[in-house]
Amino acid sequence: MSTVILLLVTGLGLGALYFLIASGLSLTYGLMRVLNFAHGIFLTVGGYASWWIAVRLPLPDPWRFLVALLGCLVVGAIVAAAVEVGLIRPLYRRHIEQVLVTVGLALAFTALVQGTFGADPISYPAPAWTQGVTQLAGANIPNSRLLAIAVAAAVFLLLSAFLRFTRWGLIVRAGVENRAMVSALGIDVQRAFTLVFALGGVAAALAGALGALYFGNIDPERGTATLIFAFIVIVIGGLGSFTGSALAAVVVGLLQQFMNYYSSVYWGFSAAGDLSVVLLLAVVLLWRPQGLLGRSVG
């Protein structure tokens, strides 16, 4: 029983990270029809920025981590907004060029981080509490997983409230349906694009900092590695569906964690988690091509 609880919580923790990176990806695709293959760099930026700030701050825990976290969110927003304005904006509606530029940016940025900080993972100065465990129904749950779940839940509620109750949220929801008509109501959709990109950058940077606690280190390739699963999440959830992304992130995180554990125990095969996620993607695409909560087209 304690193993199931442990797998459940760690699976939710992994799902929390997937959700944080997938939420921005889903919104940018939904509103802008931009598949941003460079979205993973915002996660890397978040991890490295929070590490860079934390190792230089002469503050006690948990203040050092909290200040570093805030700093990385600002950096994530700035980098994301700069990418949107500098690279994505000139290429709206030019999908092939967008893919080429964002893939190129992801590769170049990863190489830049490796060149600057080294290719090996760097140990992260995590606050003591996040390295401990909490007893839950007989299971020793790592606190870093509980923190990731709590933060992702808070981000889900905040972004839901933003989409539901603010004028910008209204513009984003309408823009997901029909961008041209939003412009035809006198609204500058371009500003909404930049805002959504910056919000996506903040959420991904948050995933970067929490991922550093989760894995105990930062890694130049974590962003691009996690992005693959984030893409699977948004396709399973339904492209452009924010709630669908949250649901799919939970499903993918749990499936991956459970399959990795049980396949390892019973079959001695530890990579079944990744394989099962890809199979789930195939099943969803065959059964419901628009994703769990996506709208069918045509």
């Binding site: 349906e177 008509m181 035809a184 109501l185 006198g186």
Partner: peptide, 21 residues
């Protein structure tokens, strides 16, 4: 959006209401 803000209203052919709103 700037043209519309100058005082141009638009009722499109397919209505184009935002169905989810």
């Amino acid at each position: 959006h700037e043209i519309v803000r100058l005082g141009v209203g638009y009722v499109p052919e397919e209505r184009e209401v935002f169905s989810e709103l």
